[in-house]
Write a protein that binds this DNA or RNA. Structure first.
Lengths: 124, 124
DNA sequence: ATTCGTGCAAAGACTTTGCATAAAT
DNA sequence: ATTTATGCAAAGTCTTTGCACGAAT
């Protein structure tokens, strides 16, 4: 069974305190302030465990390695905005009308992803 | 300057004949039927050159390595549909109403991506 | 004492690059 | 003959995995 360790707690705290989805290296950098000796493999392994437990959700943007965020931030249907200036990824709530209507006849749409790019309020 | 070689022509033909965006390994497999000795590095290099020339366009879907397609197929604004059964990626024409409206106040949206997932007409 | 987790280093997938050779001019 | 492209292998990034050691029970 899975055990509750110092590293695991540190990583969980990093995600809880984060202001947006984080990549493994960012998680490591922050977790090391708590648990200096922690390694990147542990971060990857812990992320995988937390994904299996539905404690974490993967945020995949086109052309970039995955980021992760606490699953509770993902309960309502939403999408992402990436600032092309500072690189930060924000959640945006809600959705557009009927994106499935884009598909041709005979295609069944089960889900969709929308990613917005531009300049965030902080950078503007 | 850039030269027109046997390999280059073979790769260009592969893209011209393709029924959808292709990844580097798929391009290699098809090009090898024309030019047996061709290597993967040449495919990557040629793709990069063709991107610089705006002869090719990158299709990036969340969580997957890039695929590429001839740029002329990308002239009108469009998005992609990925079949979760056969894995094939299709273009879908058109767009939804005002996707920028999802962004919060103070965020400026310059572009967006939409990806649909489901089952294609061939698989249904 | 036993079990499970960790760090490290090695390996795997994908992509880029250095270099000697080959092809195109 | 000169220039640029190619193939191969080495290296680079991101992620996973094997293994001996360490921590938790």
């Amino acid at each position: 069974m899975t055990r509750d360790t110092r590293q695991r707690r540190a990583i969980r705290t990093v995600f809880a305190d984060a202001d947006g989805p984080l990549g493994p290296q960012e998680v490591l950098d922050r977790a090391q302030q708590d648990v200096p000796g922690i390694g990147l493999a542990t971060v990857y392994r812990t992320i995988k465990l937390m994904l299996d437990d539905h404690e974490l959700h993967a945020v995949e943007l086109p052309g970039e390695p995955a980021r992760y965020e606490p699953a509770e931030r993902h309960h309502s249907h939403h999408h992402y905005f990436k600032c092309e200036n500072c690189g930060k990824v924000y959640e945006v709530q809600g959705c557009v009308n009927n994106p499935s209507s884009l598909a041709p006849h005979g295609f069944r749409v089960t889900r969709h992803e929308i990613v917005l790019y531009g300049v965030c309020a902080n950078c503007a």
